[in-house]
Design a protein around this nucleic acid. Sequence first.
DNA 1: GATCCGTTATATCGAACCGATACGTCGAAC
DNA 2: GTTCGACGTATCGGTTCGATATAACGGATC
Lengths: 225, 225
Amino acid sequence: MLELAILGLLKEQDLHGYELKKRLTETTGVFASVSFGSLYPALARLQAAGAVKAVEANTSAAVLAAASVPVTGSLGAELAALRARRAIAKSMPSASTGRGRKVYGLTDIGEQLFTDLLAASESNGEDDRSFGLRLAFARYLPADLRLGLLERRRAQLVERLARTRTTMRAGRERIDAYTRSLMEHGTETTERDISWLDGLIAAERVHVTSQHNSPSHPPSSVQHH
Amino acid sequence: MLELAILGLLKEQDLHGYELKKRLTETTGVFASVSFGSLYPALARLQAAGAVKAVEANTSAAVLAAASVPVTGSLGAELAALRARRAIAKSMPSASTGRGRKVYGLTDIGEQLFTDLLAASESNGEDDRSFGLRLAFARYLPADLRLGLLERRRAQLVERLARTRTTMRAGRERIDAYTRSLMEHGTETTERDISWLDGLIAAERVHVTSQHNSPSHPPSSVQHH
DNA sequence: GATCCGTTATATCGAACCGATACGTCGAAC
DNA sequence: GTTCGACGTATCGGTTCGATATAACGGATC
């Protein structure tokens, strides 16, 4: 789960651990708290699996070297050098502060792993954060899988709603006022989530039926009935 | 965190593990999924700390036979006997590996531990589930601590709102449509959470200022909307 | 009446994850 | 001139999860 998030962020841009954590907590938002105690082991796992590699492993020395002599052929190193130059130009001190930072980048294996993890619908944990994370990377999914993700989530929320209502009817004398208020508020929140999903699904269907290009599949075949 | 939930449920009624899990997932609802892999170790910890004790062990005849002398020719009974001996060797009292249910109840230490955990405001994890769980047992809190719980939660949500808005303004070109929709929906949800909390806080204040409160008699009417 | 299957029930294992902490550099405030 | 906070990598102990094993029971199904 965390690995999917890391791969997704690295797909857009090479990043080091600290920045990765900031984006996971702040930008992606879905992770209320992802700690270094899980981030660094996850990075180590991904590196051991060959999904990511350390693209730039030092401070200004390596940056300057990459900037002056770009003979490595590494795309990530060139990008890092570009970013370092821009940072220096903006007199941003973060390029050379602190201890030696390790910038990670995706490999081909990592690209493939990202695609596999994102499209995995059967082996799903199916929790709330899983959906939020997948939606944040939904633009990398083909249109049909994207629609399936939204509809599966909708069905899941509808089922949760039904179970909650059953529980509230079943043990109504055991539930005190605070718990009941919590459950009712949760029910309303889930209902709003469902109608929000309905909006997304409707927009998705319009997009699917109006124009025929999905991101990775050419419109060679009509939809099957 | 899980220990607090267990203690709170056992405070109302003696329960065995399976029923405990059902109430944690269904009734309390806050825990989307609490697994046996965390429930049983938590129960063992609480038992080792003397906070709970096995009140009734409805052990079957096979378990008793395995614990004392394995007389049956059944393979399963012999395996059970092996495991029971190993458990006894680990000095675990009443380790019945049979299928008899073990009903747990609170001790005086457990009552005290529950009160301490519930009132702990400084060493808080402060995540979403923590608040929901505490609110579900808010009737056991004195009125001032209950109000503090609600106001701390409110302040937390307000801060989250501010941080999310800052993030959305800062990296607006980096955020794609799906992520933006997710963040906007999350913002609306948080705003509704805050106004829901305002209702609870108002009801709480009315109760505090209008009459003398006793911890064992929570307000009979909590506002829902 | 033997067999299959879902529910009730306890328990363990490996892997993942979290919070705290340590180690370390830098700029700014005081 | 030193404390303070930001950046930055890393590990440790303990908690939790998901999967799995074990086992007894009741009800279908053949």
